[in-house]
């Protein structure tokens, strides 16, 4: 009943989609990209799986998909922590390390700044909320005997 073509596309798209999203995530601040965009890309990739396979099959194929809403809470906590740690040290909240002008620690072409940590939190929130909401609606619709 689900078209094979979309399943094939969904299968093909899964890993590249996630890879692009992670690239967008870590390259933020040095280049175009940030946690929100990365989260949206990853969430869309996973949504394609939901649409192509139905939520049961998708959750069977991708272990941990059901647990992603938990990641949203973890991400929120992480973003809050990154925001509030400078406050504990006497700076304004959301002050990032290293300060503007200093050169950050480099790992190959990656620039490690604390803003990326914050963005990982944002990424997890977006991803967790989107997949959680879609999963919950799919389940509720099925309980209601819907066509979704």
């Amino acid at each position: 009943m689900r078209p094979t073509l979309s399943q094939a596309v969904a299968r093909l798209i899964l890993l590249p989609g996630l890879a692009i999203s992670i690239a967008t995530l870590v390259k933020g601040y040095g280049d175009a990209g940030d946690g929100f965009a990365a989260g949206v890309i990853a969430a869309l990739t996973l949504l394609v799986q939901y649409v192509a396979f139905g939520y049961r099959e998708a959750e069977r194929r991708i272990p941990g998909l059901r647990r992603l809403p938990v990641a949203a809470v973890a991400g929120l906590a992480r973003a809050l922590a990154v925001a509030l740690v400078p406050a504990a040290r006497g700076d304004a909240i959301l002050t990032h390390w290293p300060p503007p002008g200093d050169s950050p620690v480099r790992l190959g072409t990656l620039e490690l700044v604390s803003a990326v940590l914050f963005d990982v939190g944002v990424f997890l929130v977006v991803l967790g909320v989107v997949t959680g909401a879609v999963g919950a609606i799919a389940r509720a619709a099925e309980r209601a005997g819907g066509r979704a």
């Binding site: 929100f36 989107v130 909401a133 609606i137 509720a140 619709a141 309980r143 209601a144 819907g146 979704a148």
Partner: peptide, 23 residues
């Protein structure tokens, strides 16, 4: 960006409401 996030939240809410109306 803020408006998009709000729009997203609202869409989710509406979908949830439709499921309940349907039920």
């Amino acid at each position: 960006l803020t408006a998009i996030v709000i729009g997203f939240a609202v869409t989710t809410l509406l979908l949830g409401l439709v499921v309940r109306v349907y039920r």
